[in-house]
């Protein structure tokens, strides 16, 4: 495998260095749960899901595997409406670089504010909320016909109860393929810092994702992810192309423990994609996500 050096390689490398430099200066970090239908319908096994726009915002290297540019929006209700997430996103190929922009907004409302009364028993005194907005800028570059790398810079503003925080984080990704096997890798939060109005500083744990996908038939793709961090998680999924315009997705996140299943479908109407997923977090309730996007 050759790694030829061109002008665009220099440009990409410069951007990477610039982003890493900036991320180390801005001293903040953020993380908003993935807001895409595919994230749940594929059981979070998205690291090697080549050609999938939602997966490209998990593993930025996958941006270079998209055949078209996308613009879209999705809305998600999690745990029987305890959490609502809305996002907008767009991807574009510009001068050898594949760029992605993603803005998710998450809101959790009606959180009881409580305190102890004079008898040291709990009393409810009000209601609190948790609101996060994130700006994710992703860039990907094909190094060779079969290898691409990417990164995502994430900026975040967070209001939690009466405190606020600002943060920044950085993910790196890699995508490659060998015959009909696709391999993806992602280092999530390789840089991460978040500063609260209380003065507290936090860093999100760095997670290492390794994904493999394989298509035994033209209409089926099997996916698996291993996530290594403080715990180890195995995620499995499958994408089945039922017709030219309709595919269904199914997956199980954390197969070895909580087994959160997900189902979804993607309907392609002449470039307009309608995406829906539902999943279960068992005792916490059901998740539903609906989205629409335009591929051009």
């Amino acid at each position: 495998m050759m790694f030829g050096v061109t002008r665009s390689n220099y440009l990409f490398g410069g951007i990477v260095c610039c982003i890493i430099f900036l991320s180390s200066q801005i001293v903040a970090s953020s993380y908003v749960d993935a807001a895409f239908a595919e994230y749940t319908s594929l059981g979070q096994a998205t690291t090697a899901a080549q050609g999938n726009v939602a997966a490209a915002f998990s593993n930025p290297a996958l941006l270079s595997t998209l055949k078209k540019s996308f613009i879209g929006s999705q809305s998600s209700s999690r745990y029987d409406s305890d959490i609502s997430i809305h996002n907008i996103y767009a991807t574009q190929h510009i001068k050898g670089l594949d760029l992605g922009l993603h803005v998710p907004v998450k809101q959790i409302s009606n959180i009881s504010e409580t305190e102890a009364n004079n008898s040291d028993e709990g009393v409810e005194i009000g209601s609190l909320s948790d609101i996060q907005i994130e700006l994710q800028l992703s860039v990907s570059k094909c190094l060779t016909e079969h290898v691409s790398v990417g990164m995502s810079l994430k900026g975040e503003a967070h209001k939690l109860a009466n405190e606020t925080a600002k943060g920044i984080g950085l993910d790196l990704g890699l995508a490659t393929d060998f015959n009909s096997v696709n391999v993806g890798a992602r280092i999530e939060n390789i840089v991460s810092k978040k500063i609260w109005s209380t003065g507290e500083e936090e860093s999100l744990p760095t997670l290492y994702h390794l994904g493999v996908s394989y298509s035994p038939f033209e209409t089926i793709m099997l996916l698996s992810d291993i996530v290594l961090g403080e715990t180890k998680t195995l995620n499995l999924a499958a994408i089945t192309q039922l017709t030219k315009n309709l595919s269904i997705q199914s997956g199980v996140a954390d197969v070895l423990d909580t087994k959160k299943w997900g189902l979804g479908l993607d309907l392609d109407l002449s470039g307009f994609h309608i995406t829906y997923s539902m999943s279960s977090a068992h005792v916490l309730g059901a998740n539903h996500t609906l989205g629409v996007s335009l591929a051009y």
Binding site: I111, S112, E113, T114, E115, A116, E121, G122, V123, E124, L128, L160, A161
Partner: peptide
């Protein structure tokens, strides 16, 4: 009256 208090949790909660 099931609840945790205080909430938000600074150090610990009950």
């Amino acid at each position: 009256r099931f609840m945790n208090y205080p909430n938000p949790i600074i150090d610990s909660t009950t």
